[in-house]
């Protein structure tokens, strides 16, 4: 056992840190800077990160879920407003369904509450839809594709989601997915949302800590008040615990049997989901009034966290999966 990142994994992380830090939005106004978003999108496309889970020569993915999680964490930290989790999950679905790689930019569709992969004929929404022309969903267990036309809805200001009409025309893409394959896919999705949440927490903590070091009240930096310090210290603790679970969940996706991978990912998700919301709320609280304005990045972290929390199941469904995994599911 050695759960340190390998030299290659550290190099991947360093590349991701550099890329994200040179092109991430540093203010809410930056979110509207289409030149910057185009550059960020092109830079991420050039890395090939969205193809990490495409099929390599042996049919397995090019890279393990750990590599994908490393990228997801850094993108979350930097509020990267470009698609990654969606296309990665789409590539995984295609690989598991034995389908060819997508022609254009593609993402996945979930039920409209984000809780599971979408089923044709039910209300659905394409997640992480920036730049995507189409989304994958299931029709009778088979993998199908629908095109995206509706305008994006911004719960998450960095990763718009796009509603899909019930009667959207679906084109077959691949063979029926096995239960095991869908279980693994869900585990990957949960592990990536955990990684995104860890990144979001790190970003939100950094934002709030920087503010606590400059904002003065009562003639002192607010970061010198114990009440503020303890909020931020608890945020660090929640983030570090989340990080340990997220790392293990990412490893489990490819290393453990499907059911164990899912139970592991669900435990991590319950932990990261609870922590993610609290940490982002803390970042708003530490900013005081400013934290409640549209112009403060704190709510952008919170909104991104809210989507990641709900994606493939938040606290409640994840705890149910944990109990089911341990043989205590509801009869």
């Amino acid at each position: 056992m050695d759960v340190r990142l390998s030299a290659e994994q550290r190099a991947l992380r360093d590349t991701a840190v550099d890329l994200v830090d040179s092109l991430r939005p540093r203010s809410v106004a930056d979110l509207g800077d289409s030149q910057r978003t185009a550059k960020l999108d092109a830079a991420v496309a050039a890395t090939g990160w969205r193809s990490l889970r495409e099929a390599g020569a042996d049919g397995g993915p090019y890279a393990s879920a750990v590599e994908a999680a490393i990228v997801a964490e850094e993108l979350g930290r930097g509020l990267a407003d470009t698609a990654f989790v969606g296309p990665t999950l789409a590539a995984e679905l295609r690989r598991l369904a034995g389908a060819a790689t997508a022609d254009g930019a593609e993402t996945v569709a979930t039920k409209s509450d984000f809780s599971a992969v979408a089923l044709a004929g039910q209300p659905a929404t394409a997640i992480d839809g920036a730049g995507a022309a189409a989304a994958l969903l299931l029709a009778g267990g088979e993998l199908v594709q629908v095109s995206l036309n509706a305008p994006a809805e911004p719960l998450d200001l960095t990763r718009p989601h796009v509603p899909i009409p019930r009667d959207a025309a679906a084109t077959p893409v691949g063979r029926t997915l096995t239960t095991d394959a869908l279980t693994k896919w869900t585990a990957l999705g949960l592990a990536l949302t955990c990684a995104d949440l860890v990144g979001v927490m790190r970003g939100a903590i950094a934002l709030a800590t920087d503010y606590a070091k400059v904002r003065r009240q009562y003639g002192a930096h607010i970061g010198s008040f114990q009440a503020v310090q303890h909020l931020l210290a608890d945020a660090v603790v929640a983030m570090e615990g989340s990080r340990s679970t997220a790392l293990h969940a990412a490893w489990a996706v490819d290393a453990l049997p499907a059911d164990d991978a899912l139970a592991t990912a669900a435990g991590a998700k319950a932990y990261c989901a609870r922590a993610g919301r609290t940490v982002c709320e803390t970042a708003i609280q530490v900013h005081g009034g400013i934290g409640n304005t549209w112009e403060c990045l704190a709510h952008v972290y919170l909104r991104r966290a809210l989507l990641s929390i709900d994606l493939l199941g938040g606290v409640g469904p994840s705890l149910e999966r944990v109990l089911a995994g341990a043989g205590h599911g509801l009869q």
């Binding site: 050695d2 570090e240 615990g241 340990s244 679970t245 435990g267 705890l319 149910e320 109990l323 341990a326």
Partner: peptide, 23 residues
């Protein structure tokens, strides 16, 4: 059942966290 589930999640978290720190 919910309290039990949280205890499972929390104790598992610590197990992985210790693997990370010992590594």
């Amino acid at each position: 059942r919910r309290e039990l589930a949280w205890a499972m999640v929390e104790s598992e978290m610590l197990r992985q966290h210790v693997c990370r720190r010992l590594s």
